[in-house]
Design a protein around this nucleic acid. Structure first.
Lengths: 106, 106
DNA sequence: AAAGTATTTGGCTATTATACCAAATACGCC
DNA sequence: GGCGTATTTGGTATAATAGCCAAATACTTT
């Protein structure tokens, strides 16, 4: 595999990796309904606000979110909304996994 | 967030996390064209064969791949092919990121 | 300008992930 | 059964990640 191809896979994997954390995935999915300020996530997620802020930074650096400061608050929104299209298939994977377990019980 | 919802996000994130590694993503994408034996990956990827085997195990445990032993070889294939549908959007994220950088240069 | 709220950043630690090597296992062939 | 090839498993060193706390920064209000 040449250097360029390698770099491309690294970049693509980085995007998926950013979504590969429960808190980050949750936040990204919430943002599908529209922008949210950090404070809202802080209220509903049981984690230190610094932790939440860092997770949002990771999503931003991955190119998934963008932020805007308005007054005291920072609002985050999806930069490329299609990124959550794949979630129905992720759920299909979970369903398939469940089915496999059931089959084992037969 | 209740316990059940939390568990669901953890499970969904785990699927994305499994794809969030360059080697694993590469292998998953290759399998979109049909099954492959481990030996083929060993030939084309510059990593120890034990490393490749472990990456395949991670994809299998995530429910993305399934394997079948035939003779000396083990063949892997996509269990839920739609899982790669999202890749066009991942590429859109990369393109968008590139555009943002260009905009900075203006 | 002091005080209060929202968010980010730095620093530390514990946990998890990755990669290699060596050894074990599985299978087919002679 | 012994040998060669393919793959997995175990062990270990190193690197990356996640979370918390404390401190810094940014903005608003008084």
């Amino acid at each position: 595999m040449d250097k360029k191809t390698k770099a491309l896979y690294k970049a693509k994997a980085a995007v998926l990796k950013a979504l590969g954390h429960p808190t980050r995935l949750y936040m990204a999915e919430q943002l599908a309904a529209g922008e949210r300020c950090v404070c809202e996530f802080v209220r509903e997620i049981d984690a230190d606000f610094s932790t939440i802020s860092k997770h949002l930074l990771i999503l931003k650096q991955a190119g998934i979110l963008e932020d805007e400061k308005r007054g005291l608050n920072v609002f985050y929104r999806l930069k490329v909304p299609c990124i959550l299209n794949s979630m129905s298939c992720v759920e299909a994977v979970l369903a398939s996994r469940l089915q496999s377990q059931k089959d084992l019980m037969k």
